[in-house]
Design a protein around this nucleic acid. Structure first.
Lengths: 153, 153
DNA sequence: GCGATTTGATTGAGCGTTCAACTACCTCGA
DNA sequence: TCGAGGTAGTTGAACGCTCAATCAAATCGC
């Protein structure tokens, strides 16, 4: 069926391109900093963070995939790498024999602890220092609205 | 020198994680849609868009890299692929013998024209439909502030 | 209980990006 | 005018991600 395209008006166009440019530049910058200072991409850093916050530093692979917003495949590959680096280990899940549990090693925790200050400083410098408190609040609401909306129909 | 880390307070933490989750989910969704419907990733779509808007559909490689926010290397690889698809061609720059000019073929333009309605609809559905007009305005200001800030020191 | 379906996780191939190295050309200053 | 340093663009290897296929185990329906 022929549906009329709801094109973007000039304001929307400008907003969309500004958002694209800003989020790409921000993530690229943080990714490069993390790669340079800690030898890992941002996605891997996030995995270590989430594991470090979990009880006993352990999480089921599927939960870890959920909280990091990652596909199972991506996580599987990533954990393989992190295991090779000695930062994470896998073990069988006692209650579900299909399941695997990833846990953060002491070495992984130490690496994370070493990387965190520099990364947090980067987030502050590149994101929060550019925005007013009101804008920070707006950005949170906007982001939460987007996430809610994407997780619907 | 030992510099005190300016850690994120709970509100900032929440904002940062919400932004991460939202922008990743949005870009992943749009990327997947574009790959499915047009057979190309979003980065390639953007290259075609920028070329289509340029005078005579031509741009120097370095300008194209700038407007798409891409590294020269990335663009070079991308244009190689787009050339193989028959959507873009390269030619020598007449005024600078180091230079290359990328131009959009009729085939590339047609492909873009076919992909655009679906993609624009996706941007509207996943981004603008989730936000109030005020939030759209806020998002533009925030994004422009971020970009300005990242292009400074 | 038992087949059918769903869920949890992994694998390998192919693709896109990064990084560093490299070539070629341009520009500027002494 | 010639050499140093900068700029334009490309290349190949390594890496991370996606997609589809796969396997095993759990759960559902009857």
């Amino acid at each position: 069926m022929a549906v009329m395209t709801r094109w973007l008006d000039p304001d929307e166009q400008r907003t969309w391109r500004a958002f694209l440019a800003a989020s790409r530049a921000l993530m690229d910058t943080l990714d490069r900093e993390l790669q340079r200072d800690a030898g890992m991409p941002h996605a891997y850093y996030e995995i270590l963070v989430r594991l470090s916050e979990a009880p006993e530093r352990r999480l089921r692979m599927s939960e870890l995939a959920d909280v990091t917003g990652s596909s199972r495949s991506r996580l599987s590959h990533a954990v393989t790498r992190l295991e090779a680096a000695g930062w994470v280990r896998r073990e069988d899940c006692p209650t579900d024999r299909r399941g695997q549990i990833a846990w953060l090693t002491d070495d992984g925790f130490a690496t994370l602890a070493a990387a965190a200050p520099g990364h947090v400083e980067g987030v502050r410098r590149h994101l929060f220092d550019a925005l007013s408190p009101a804008q920070v609040d707006q950005l949170r609401r906007i982001s939460e609205a987007l996430t809610d909306h994407l997780n619907q129909p």
